[in-house]
Write a protein that binds this DNA or RNA. Sequence first.
RNA 1: CCGCCUGUGGCGCAGCUGGAUAACGCAGCAGAUUCCGAUUCUGAAGAACGGAGGUUCGAAUCCUCUUAGGCGGGCCA
Length: 562
Amino acid sequence: MSVVVKNAKEQIKNIIFKAANNAIADGVLENAELRDFAIEVPKDRANGDYAVNAAMVWSRLFKKAPRQIAEILMTNASLEGTYIEKYEIAGPGFINFYLSQRYYADIVLDVEDKKEVYGRSDFGEGKRVLVEFVSANPTGPMHIGNARGGALGDCLAAVMDAAGYYTEREFYINDAGNQINKFALSLDLRYLQLYKDGIEMPEDSYHGEDIVNHAKAFAEIHGDSFVEKDEAERRSELVKFALPKNIKGLEEDLGKYRIKYDTWFKESTLHQNGETTRIIELLKESGYTYVNEDALWFKATEFGCDKDFVLVRANGVPTYVVPDIAYHYNKLVTRKFDKAIDILGADHHGYVPRLKAALTALGVDADRLDVVLMQMVRLVRDGEVIKASKRSGKAITLVTLLDEVPIDAARFFFNLREPNSHFDFDLDLAVNESNSNPVYYVQYAYARICSIIRNLEGEGIKNNPANFDELMLLNAPEERELILHIAALTDEIVASAKAYDPAKITHYVQELATKFHKFYSACRVKGEDEKLTQARLSLCEATAITIKNVLRLMKIDAPEKM
RNA sequence: CCGCCUGUGGCGCAGCUGGAUAACGCAGCAGAUUCCGAUUCUGAAGAACGGAGGUUCGAAUCCUCUUAGGCGGGCCA
């Protein structure tokens, strides 16, 4: 049986707005456009369960002192049928609300009722969102930045989904263009090196070990039969041989990282089905292009960019932006996603306005493209920064990282800070599987709860479904704190989705673990009055469900034993 | 030269749709377990939020300038 828990914050919002409208109707307050206000859990719990700053926000509006407005509001307010037990007007004009015990009991019932869907909402109204992330070049192994992008994008997609968006995950494969030519060149030279002396790798080729291995594998099958063949044919064969292996490798490696995409989108399909040439035509038709020194330019300055940029080079070859524009056009127009979210490294930030400018020229609302820029990750070992460079082949790859660091830890670490902050990944610390790693703190809380439930079951005390009267006994401060935090999950997920910042739920779950540990040390479950034991058992269960639901979003294990 | 991002106690960070004594973790000092897992909890110490102005009844949060660091500004991707 489902319990209807009307969100306490919603109730408070209604109370205040109704009170204001009543006062306006009575002429006690003058008519005015009512701005939204904040309802928050005060830092100091002596200030109630929820604090409202409406009277302060509206003080200029009504031309009265905040405290006076608060008085007027509350004399016009009705608390009938709400969870509000009492209120106080305090400080500069805060209205502090105190919740009745019924609220706490209902929250626990609600969580136990909803179980694995607790925390989900329909905030996103089913809007279609495509989250594109990692999209590493298939010309070599993934690096540490891809590891951050992977954890971030995957978790963000899960958060969007939980917040009520229809969400798909996508990997864009750059299997065309210059870097593929470079890939071909590098493979070619490595292959020739096996049979000839004096072949040097140019500065701008890929120097990684993986290229050498591809060449050797190719040689094992074909021997030297390609050495004397036409260069273009040889390169084409080498790419045909190595590229699918690389793509498969990306898929497998990301799979190990627990990332599964709905779509692997190949750039080459945009060329094959003519979408790139079509985009060039559309851009020309838009009137925002011109020819200068045989190259086709886009008038980006018309859209607020500081420079125009080249679409098609003088030699007739489009620059990389063209397929990118076509790709995003495909997402938003052809496939009709309401939102395209790209997770990109901060080094791409200069390119975002250009892409948006082109989309605008094509008549697409550029606000439908949101780019989450993540700052660079630096790897630190022995207190020293390791320089990550793909070309040198010495960079630490995603695979190496996952060999060193537990996957749970990596995924948690990369979602510990907001995307837009510089992040030093300390390998020594992450490899160190101790309490210095916050993921263990959270997992421990979960394991501890499971242990309690197991323990009591062993003594014949069953974890029965919650019962309202029993839950009314949960009125210790630590119990209320814990429940209040559990109650905040849905809002927290929505906030995380709005801000495109999964780090919010990482912080949330850490705090949840802390509040549980505090409850645990203050309140015993076992050996209390039978009803209280049942109530606390239910609270444990609700906490476990909440922790597990968050960890599931992050695709991190919730171990029953550690 | 221009643009974007960041700068909060020794270190790592939260808070940033402006609001009541700036939260938390680590290092670190003092404590707690005859009892459900000590990878735990309690207490004390430690920062006026890079700097300077400004807006406001009120600013770590908004604006301007400045400074330090990161990243961009190719007919490279």
